[in-house]
């Protein structure tokens, strides 16, 4: 038997969801829909703050229990406090804040982006170590044609045949496949939404 709080949560969630959905089809409900969406945005903003507290508390716990990688937790906490002080004193657009952002955040994220390139190239090679199926062969062929015809490599990108092949791949089979996938995704989203409106899925607790 469901507890009164669970029934209350479900009623609030389902009615808010239903009003928001109907707001897209029945214009008089659009005002209420907008208010609900604004509340959701405010809550999401507050949730980021809660998320940061969660991140810090997880690392505090890791540090206090002297778990593996505790040193990195210490670096994270000190970096957080340092950033908070710099951004608090200098402001979000201040010179010290921008210096910190450009020298640490941008450079670290650029490094990870570069690493991602290597990881993806390695993944493409590794794909052939898996079971070779028609799908993997097709995937790799398409990948190689698009890569070779796009990259400035030995002037290959200027070859008319390759350019035309890439154009055709990009505008016919790739678009068709992507749209097919997107239709499936859209139906999945709709099904997930309807299950929540019906009270079957309850990500807000039971």
């Amino acid at each position: 038997m469901k507890s009164p709080s669970a029934i209350f949560n479900m009623t609030i969630a389902c009615s808010a969801g239903l009003v928001t959905l109907l707001g897209y089809f029945i214009p008089p409900l659009a005002g209420i829909r907008d208010v609900l969406l604004q509340w959701a945005v405010i809550l999401a903003g507050f949730a980021l703050l809660v998320g940061i507290i969660n991140l810090l508390s997880a690392h505090f716990r890791k540090l206090s229990k002297a778990k593996k990688g505790g040193f990195y937790s210490l670096v994270l906490i000190l970096s957080f406090v340092g950033s908070l002080i710099v951004f608090g004193v200098s402001g979000p657009d201040g010179s010290w804040s921008l210096l910190l952002f450009n020298s640490v955040q941008v450079s670290v994220e650029s490094t990870l982006l570069a690493l991602l390139t290597v990881v993806l190239a390695y993944a493409a090679i590794r794909l052939f170590h898996k079971e070779v199926t028609r799908a993997t062969v097709l995937f790799m062929l398409t990948f190689l044609i698009v890569l070779v015809s796009s990259a400035p490599l030995f002037g290959l990108s200027n070859t008319p045949l390759l350019s035309e092949l890439r154009e055709w791949l990009s505008s016919v089979p790739i678009v068709a496949g992507a749209r097919g996938i997107l239709i499936g995704v859209a139906l999945g989203v709709l099904a997930a939404g309807l299950r929540i409106l019906m009270g079957v899925d309850r990500p807000y607790g039971r």
């Binding site: 999401a44 507050f46 949730a47 980021l48 969660n54 508390s57 309850r202 607790g205 039971r206």
Partner: peptide
């Protein structure tokens, strides 16, 4: 997760799942 709301909801989902299995003590705050 990389989003605050998802982090909160994931905690709630985990807690609810353990509660429904009568093993709420399994739930860890992090």
């Amino acid at each position: 997760s990389g989003e605050g709301t998802l982090a909160i909801l994931s905690q709630d989902v985990l807690k609810s799942a353990y509660r429904s299995m009568n093993v709420e003590s399994q739930y860890e705050a992090d």
